[in-house]
Design a protein around this nucleic acid. Structure first.
Length: 400
RNA sequence: GGAGGGAUAGCGAAGUGGCCAAACGCGGCAGACUGUAAAUCUGUUGACUAACGUCUUCGAAGGUUCGAAUCCUUCUCCCUCCA
């Protein structure tokens, strides 16, 4: 039932930044095949933000590959650890989250992770780490904490930097890697996946398992996906993300706005393209390559039909300029109306001052005609196309 | 416990009685250029107003003053050094 270890290894190693260690992974794969026992592949999810974005899918897709090869995904919802907040890559202490918020987030997480993972019960095991962490006594915690020295903890780059810059580190944050490592012990993980920022945490799991006389898990870290800006990692709080639940046109549009340079990185990390395949794409027009990428991403979360529709929508709005095709209706009362009021009805702007500015800067058009006087009063007709800024396109409908 | 320093708009950071809705940089938005690219250039970036202007904002609450981000008092939080 399992494919030969080397075959599996080839698939699994693709795209990974670092594997501790490949030899151990091969050995585990061989043993698993011989014993007809699926490997337990652990992935911790931190339910502090309620949305999964493309950045998360890099690791989730790797998890899916394990599943497709017959292994078992063990998804840990870090409901207990979330109370501390993972210090990885963070420059400041995270606020602790309320239990209800964590629960809510965990539910959306599971639902969204299902867009990438195989959710069949024999392929996916979901555990909340409060199950074993909540009941630990102080003595248990002390015992756990004694596994690690201060020097080891302080080796971490993010801690070191924070210390240097006089940024707080809550003592509880030091315990985070231990909690996560303990998860590995409890679920008897064979492999733990994560982003490169999880390397330290995941390696702690190896140590703890060894101390508990278990075979240490293999740690596999995947690259961190850069966000839309192409500089910082994709994250919700930076606003440079594409969420897996976003509507097709949003996904497509956002993907189109990334730089060419970043596009190749996304091809590699999100679609698993090889350098050779990317080189072939580079020979063509970059915009075509980007549309293909954008369509592939939409297709992944919404299906092929939606991908085609999003592509058409984009073409109509920006390439062919057939605004009539893409405009959403905007109900307007019949009669005269100030331009600012009209634009305000789109609900797409934060204040009237904002609208006034956009008008003055030539960002508002009615039927292709620029209107730059904020105080002009017009009498809109049904079917007219109102455009405000790059993205807002509405077709006037008269109400009443 | 002692001594000193700090908290300013989304972020970083100037400002130390009126010229401060608050320099500058980043980020954001819009325009030009394009491939809705990116980069670049230009404008803009508290709210309301057609505008004059009005209102709210510089950790919190009080006070001094014709006038406070700026001075005083108390409070909250943070940092550094010493113990």
């Amino acid at each position: 039932m399992f494919r030969p270890a080397d075959e599996q290894l080839k698939i699994l190693c693709a795209g990974a930044v670092q594997i501790e260690t490949v030899d151990e992974l091969r050995k585990k794969l061989e043993e698993s095949r011989a014993a007809h026992r699926p490997l337990r592949v652990k992935l911790g999810m931190d339910p502090t933000a309620p949305d999964i974005h493309l950045g998360h899918t890099v690791v989730l897709r790797k998890m899916r590959e394990f599943q497709d090869l017959g292994h078992k995904a063990v998804l840990i919802i870090g409901d207990y650890t979330a109370m501390i907040g993972d210090p990885s890559g963070k420059t400041r202490t995270r606020p602790m989250l309320a239990p209800e918020a964590i629960k809510r987030n965990a539910e959306t997480y599971f639902q969204q992770a299902g867009k990438v993972l195989d959710t069949a019960p024999d392929k996916l095991e979901i555990r909340y780490n409060s199950e074993w962490l909540a009941g630990m006594s102080f003595a248990d915690v002390l015992r756990l904490a004694s596994h690690m020295t201060a020097a080891q903890i302080l080796q971490r780059r993010d801690f070191k930097e924070r210390l240097q810059n006089d940024v707080d580190i809550a003592l509880s944050e030091f315990l985070y890697p231990l909690m996560q490592g303990w998860d590995s012990v409890v679920v008897r993980a064979d492999v733990e996946l994560g982003g490169t920022d999880q390397l330290f945490n995941n390696l702690v799991g190896r140590e703890l398992q060894r101390d508990e006389k278990q075979e240490s898990q293999v740690v596999m870290v995947m690259p961190i996906l850069p966000g839309l800006d192409g500089v910082q990692k994709m994250s919700k709080s930076l606003g440079n993300y594409i969420g897996v639940s976003e509507p097709p046109n949003e996904v497509f549009g956002k993907a189109m706005s990334i730089s060419d340079e970043l596009m190749w990185g996304w091809y590699e990390m999100l679609l698993g393209k090889t350098q050779a395949e990317i080189a072939a794409l580079k020979a063509g027009h970059p915009m075509e390559a980007k549309k293909t990428l954008a369509a592939a991403l939409v297709e992944r979360f919404h299906g092929a039909e939606a991908a085609q529709a999003a592509r058409d929508h984009f073409d109509n709005q920006f390439s062919k300029k057939k605004l009539d095709e893409v405009a959403e209706p905007l109900a307007v009362p019949a009669g005269k109306i100030g331009l600012i009021e009209l634009v305000e009805k789109t609900g797409a702007f934060k204040s009237r001052g904002d609208i006034r500015r956009i008008i003055q800067e030539g960002g508002v058009q009615l039927d292709g005609q620029k209107l730059t006087d904020p105080k002009v009063v017009i009498e809109p007709r049904a079917g007219q196309i109102l455009r405000a800024g790059k993205r807002v396109v509405r077709k006037i409908e008269l109400a009443g």
